[in-house]
Design a protein around this nucleic acid. Structure first.
Lengths: 112, 112
DNA sequence: TACGTTGTTCGACATTCGCAGAACATCGAA
DNA sequence: TTCGATGTTCTGCGAATGTCGAACAACGTA
């Protein structure tokens, strides 16, 4: 993550955001971040290889869904709820609610 | 469309719906249907071949976003707003609003 | 300095997707 | 019944996607 490349709110694309959220693993990660907490993704437990998870995090980041911060060798990620709300009002909450009722991405969890 | 295969509301998958709506052409079609009107898709003008449009309509139908009705040789399509609202409350309106501000799928129109 | 941890990048591969043209099926109309 | 209109399906192609392992880079620490 040498070039974080987070898009500005105005540069966010709706189809890109929807595509980013149409994968169970990525939606699972987003659900874990729904409470606004920032979490280091060494704590993320997903049923994929770490290179795959890295790729998913990049997709979320490039779409503008998450913001990644680097501290030493570790990365921390959190939802860009405010930016998304400003750009696409009510979209993220609706998707999160729907994901909750469907329990999408339940195989993604956070380790203590 | 000999086998319409519209999923029941309970069988709708969130990731499937999001994937269906993450394409500009399909989102453009959905926007045209947003007012609840049913329209024969001979009136649909999209910058793709008819076989491609047929494929997109199938994706929307299989995801549960639209319902297709056949009358003679012609097909009519409309949004399953109520079913979607029951399954994923507030999701479709949020996406439609976002698509409107982004003007996604503007190259899809309806001919008189 | 050497090592281990952490995350990225690089092939590689199988799958899916978007797209188009051609052939086909179905139905109404001449 | 023959023809035209309408929509589906088949096949093919290039691009993108999800996945993995291996190699790499950056940083903290023993």
């Amino acid at each position: 993550m040498k070039d974080p490349r987070h898009p500005a709110p105005d540069a966010m694309s709706l189809t890109r955001v929807l595509a980013a959220l149409s994968d169970p693993v990525r939606l699972g990660v987003v659900r874990l971040l729904a409470d606004g907490a920032e979490l280091g993704w060494g704590e993320l437990r997903a049923p994929v290889a770490k290179s795959t998870l890295s790729h998913h995090m990049k997709v979320l980041r490039d779409a503008g869904v998450t913001r990644t911060r680097q501290e030493g060798t570790r990365c921390y990620v959190r939802l860009r709820s405010a930016d998304l709300e400003a750009r696409f009002p009510a979209l993220l909450p609706a998707i999160l609610d729907a994901a909750a009722t469907d329990d999408v991405g339940a195989d993604v969890s956070v380790a203590s």
